[in-house]
Simulated scan of single mutants.
Amino acid sequence: MIGRRSLIRRGSAAAGALALGAGAGLATAAPASASAAPGTTGFLPLPEHVKPLPDTGDGYRLERVGRNGYVLIAGIVQCVFVVTREGVVLVDAPPAARAAIRAAIPSVTDKPVTHVIYSHDHADHIGAVGDHPGATLIAHKDCAALLAAYADPARPVPHRIIRDHHKVIHIGGEEIHFIYPGPNHEAGNMMIHFPRLRLAHMADVVMPGWAPYRAWGNADNIPGLLTAHDAILDLDFDTFCGGHVYRTATRAEVAQSREFFVDMWSTTVRKSSEISSADAAAAVAEKENVWAVQKVWIDRIAQSVTSELIDRWGTRIAAVDTFTPDCVGALVVSTFTDAPVNFP
């Protein structure tokens, strides 16, 4: 069943305006910001291990995985393709990587793309599938239902639908596992595992070495993100493709992403009980303006949580000072709407 769309995902101060240490009881220590040029805004410096690696000179990086697997990285988008006996199986077709896909696949094989697997329905991951006419399109049933509702010619409804939580399909001699842990970043967002290559792909759940994108990328089910992390870590893999940022991930980096999620959730729950909603109401001129009261309260939680996370994580992973307030705001709402029991 398709999960409900979370509509309240903001509820936090803009990261650029985050005033660390402002207000009673907030943490004040934070790593030094990178030097900002005149007219620009300073943020924490990126750790070296998250920065882009050298590319081919044509604007993309191609990493070989095993005998016949490849991860393609173009800017901050990633996809996977595997060369089988029959042809190429492509996992996602991001529009931002369109030119890179057209160049990279012919650089290693003259076989056509015979199958495109949709990780999920979002246009930034599958909006260029039309470049592969004649390919068999594969997706989870919830993804297919969303695409049918969109009726977007750039994202056709798949030909083959995965209805099981774990389905194994053989294509051109390659064993491919389709695993759906339930709604997470999006309803129908699947893991695709190539066990022989020790290669796993799942979009928009793990950003290797980075704090999460704004409000978890409009996540459909935030507690499901932890379930997805656990499902990834249950797999036997050496290389993980997360769909975004400059590098693939190791198992240790997926585990680190999980640790950050748990820390943010636990700290948000603690701060939600420590920071008074009554005090927030006292700061609003019209007490009946419940949206304003909620905003003040959630912004105070987001500011305090972000301060703590910068202290613990600011030098270990990238961009903790950017979208973390928005993510915390989404977590606050999730704690009393999704309201998971015995979590995390």
Rank of each mutant, 00 (worst) to 15 (best):
V71P: 01
L26Q: 14
G59D: 12
H115P: 00
V82D: 12
A37F: 14
L20Q: 12
H115T: 13
Y70G: 01
T40A: 07
R102C: 09
D131Q: 10
V113A: 11
G66K: 12
I138M: 00
R67G: 10
G39T: 02
Y60M: 11
L44H: 01
I138D: 00
H49S: 15
A128S: 14
V65R: 01
A74N: 13
H49G: 15
I138F: 00
Y70H: 11
A74G: 03
G130S: 14
V82H: 03
R67E: 14
L146K: 15
A37L: 15
A37N: 13
G11R: 14
I73A: 05
T114L: 00
C79L: 04
A19H: 06
T114V: 05
G39S: 07
C143Y: 05
F43M: 02
G130K: 13
L53I: 08
G134H: 06
F81S: 00
K51Y: 08
T84Q: 08
S119R: 12
P52C: 06
A135W: 04
L72S: 04
D92Y: 04
S33P: 04
L44R: 08
A17F: 12
A139P: 11
R61F: 10
I76P: 06
S33Y: 13
D58L: 14
G25Y: 03
A97D: 03
D58P: 06
S107M: 06
A17Q: 14
A27T: 07
V80G: 02
P112V: 01
A17P: 00
A104G: 02
V80A: 04
K51P: 13
H125S: 10
A36E: 11
D142F: 05
L46Y: 13
T136A: 12
T84I: 04
A17I: 05
L46F: 10
H49N: 15
C79M: 04
A123H: 10
G127I: 05
P52A: 03
D110K: 08
C143V: 04
H120N: 13
A29S: 15
K111D: 01
S119D: 13
A29R: 15
L147P: 01
